[in-house]
């Protein structure tokens, strides 16, 4: 179980990386390596060229500017876990990261790598969708952005061209007192979730939910934003009933069947976990302590 031969490149700046990527026919970008390296070792992929992004400092940053949080694509998951900016502005990322692999993989794995790998059950794409993230993309031809919603093209395939690199992910933080929860069910801690749910809520003084974001991972081929559920909880004066009703809508979502897990089971998990996440986020928003 050894990687096949390839040409290795470790450009020192983004521009060089873009140049290489434009030039090479069958190249793979190496970010944290926690998905590409196993695939190389198992010889599931045979790139002629591997372009390592780990020596490009400009891709590694966490910053807040003009009300937007911007994370460089090569920012490692462990850096996010320990970032005060993230803790202050989007704590749901930290809550989700507890479920992302293990210490050793979070020390290498990057946010950009996780988003581009786009495993349907992965936590970070689900959270990015919940946060309405904007994906910054660059190529020799120029720069562009994509809403996270439009980022997945197909199963495990982002909507980027072969010469493009994801450089950063950016989003507007929710208000300070928002409620949040990331809840998932996996076979063991650190495994990809069977279903994961990211919920963000703003609760008004009267207890009604004024703004909601509900996203399911693992149910469809890419994260699913549950707009119907969001509409049900938003503005309702009986939040508990609304949360139940909202969760129940997940039963109708078209869920994947695969060799190991049925769509019906995914739907059931989606219903149960969405309700748990909603309640947890709600309790946090109103200042209740949560387990």
């Amino acid at each position: 179980m050894k990687p096949p031969p390839f040409h290795y490149h470790d450009p020192r700046c983004l521009d060089d990386a873009l140049g290489l990527l434009a030039e090479k026919e069958n190249a793979k970008l190496l970010a944290g390596g926690q998905s590409l390296m196993p695939m190389l070792n198992m010889r599931f992929v045979f790139p002629d060229d591997v372009i390592d992004l780990n020596r490009i400092p400009e891709l590694t940053s966490i910053g807040e500017d003009e009300g937007l949080v911007r994370i460089g694509a090569m920012t490692r998951q462990c850096a996010l876990e320990r970032s005060e900016v993230i803790r202050d502005h989007c704590p749901i990322i930290i809550e989700a990261l507890r479920y992302v692999g293990h210490i050793q993989t979070r020390n290498r794995g990057t946010i950009g790598g996780s988003l581009c790998h786009l495993d349907p059950s992965a936590e970070l794409p689900t959270v990015a969708q919940g946060l309405d993230a904007t994906i910054h993309i660059q190529s020799k031809r120029g720069a562009r952005t994509l809403a996270m919603e439009d980022f997945p093209a197909f199963y495990m395939t982002p909507a980027i061209e072969p010469d493009e690199i994801v450089t950063a992910v950016e989003f507007a933080p929710w208000p300070k007192d928002h409620g949040f929860a990331f809840v998932e069910f996996a076979r063991r801690l650190g495994d990809f979730a069977i279903v994961g749910v990211a919920v963000l809520l703003v609760v008004s003084a009267d207890g009604s939910i004024s703004r909601a974001s509900i996203t399911l991972g693992g149910v469809g081929q890419a994260p699913i934003r549950c707009t119907a559920a969001e509409e049900i909880v938003t503005g309702s004066n009986d939040s508990d009933a609304a949360m139940r009703e909202a969760a129940e809508t997940c039963r109708k979502i078209d869920a994947m069947d695969d060799l190991h897990v049925s769509g019906v089971y995914r739907q059931k998990l989606a219903v149960a976990l969405t309700l748990r996440a909603l309640r947890k986020a709600y309790d946090r928003a109103i200042g209740e302590s949560v387990a």
Partner: peptide, 16 residues
């Protein structure tokens, strides 16, 4: 065999 790696073959871990 539909399972040929340790991510899918679930050996018990320290949390289980």
């Amino acid at each position: 065999p539909v399972i040929t790696n340790l991510a899918e073959y679930l050996l018990p871990t320290s949390t289980t």
